[in-house]
């Protein structure tokens, strides 16, 4: 589910970085408010545990294949949403830097798609709301399954939106969506079952390790939201999102273009000979970094591609030659200084 750098445009990457940093700031603030010095080392070691747990292949019955854990829902059920989110951010950072798994530029997207939904939606909306009237085996199973499926569906939906907004694929939105969502539904079910199995084991062995166990079992909290209400909120959110999809998928002109067409008979008005307008247009041409959402002079790429490729190879050979020469000289110098 990791996105690579090639799949995101800089604007999309920047937006997702901003969203993820906001969630990160909120989580750090909450952890600082808890003033529990032990929590940070425990979270660090837990991050290593999740990383190790992701390496285990679980047999999927009846299919002959195997799946693995992502860990968002598991972490939020063990540490809580904020601590879980921070831990998963660390796992993603380590995967990005140490194993080049998921891009540096796409890190904001990956944090949002996996850690934010997994921990905040899964932990706050599903786990907390379902467990606040006391824990039971059935509730743990239901919360794990529902949380994992929902968070993976949201993650897959976000990937689709981010990839399409970046203009990477020629696939129509609905086709891309119809490929992504069912795959992640299957992955979500497997993830949910693994998460449930682990949490049920811990519920039997050491229930105090589950997030909110002591709080929820000591007294039944009379919260504002019941499980049913939570499901209704999620359903409403899904309907709103679906509405958003239909707007995005529409090939009709937008509101302004439609109005222009109705009034003037064309979506765009031709420039007039007014001198101020022409001066402003010239200034805009000079200052616009991305005219018509493309880099300047990019229209000439068809003509210059071939010569460009030849140039690249010439420069590469030159650079490689120079580097080898410099390396040879450096080694010679080092050998000379060692001998002296």
């Amino acid at each position: 589910m990791h996105m690579t750098d090639a799949l995101v445009a800089p604007a999309v990457a920047g937006t997702m970085y901003a969203c993820s940093i906001a969630a990160l700031g909120l989580s750090v603030r909450r952890i600082r408010l808890e003033e529990d010095q032990k929590k940070i080392p425990v979270m660090g070691v837990m991050g290593a545990f999740v990383f190790a747990a992701q390496m285990i292949n679980f047999t999927i019955p009846g299919t002959g294949s195997s799946g693995h854990l992502c860990g968002g829902m598991l972490l939020s059920a063990l540490l809580g949403p904020s601590a879980g989110f921070l831990t998963l951010c660390c796992v993603l950072l380590v995967q990005c830097f140490l194993f080049a798994d998921g891009g540096l530029l796409a890190l904001g997207c990956n944090i949002w798609n996996m850690a934010f939904y997994g921990c905040f939606v899964g932990g706050m909306l599903i786990w907390r709301q379902m467990m606040k009237r006391g824990m039971s085996r059935k509730k743990i199973l239901a919360a794990s399954l529902l949380g994992s499926i929902l968070t993976l569906q949201l993650g897959a939906f976000s990937i689709t939106l981010q990839t399409l907004a970046s203009g990477i694929t020629e696939l129509p939105f609905m086709v891309f969506l119809s490929v992504m969502q069912p795959i992640h539904l299957a992955i979500g079910i497997v993830e949910g079952l693994i998460t449930a199995a682990v949490l049920l084991f811990l519920y039997e062995a050491r229930p105090e390790l589950l997030w909110g166990y002591q709080e929820f079992t000591r007294e039944t909290v009379g919260g504002k939201l019941t499980f049913r209400k939570t499901i209704v909120i999620i359903a409403v959110a899904a309907v709103i999102l679906s509405g958003g999809i239909s707007l995005l998928a529409s090939s009709d002109p937008d509101g302004l273009e439609w109005s222009m067409e109705q009034v003037f008979g064309a979506a765009e008005i031709k420039p007039s000979g007014f001198p101020l307008y022409q001066a402003a247009q010239k200034l805009q041409e000079k200052t616009a970094l991305l005219p018509d959402y493309a880099w300047k002079n990019s229209h000439s790429i068809f003509e210059t591609s071939f010569s460009g490729i030849v140039g690249v190879f010439v420069v590469l050979i030159l650079c490689a030659g120079c580097c080898y020469l410099l390396r040879f000289m450096r080694r010679k110098r080092d050998r000379g200084s060692d001998g002296g």
Binding site: V42, A48, A53, N57, F58, L193, I194, A197, V198, L200
Partner: peptide, 20 residues
Amino acid sequence: KGIHIKTWGAFVGQLFLRTI
């Protein structure tokens, strides 16, 4: 091929308890 469904919980759970 992998860890059997019956031992999913116990296997990762044991690893988690050791981690804690």
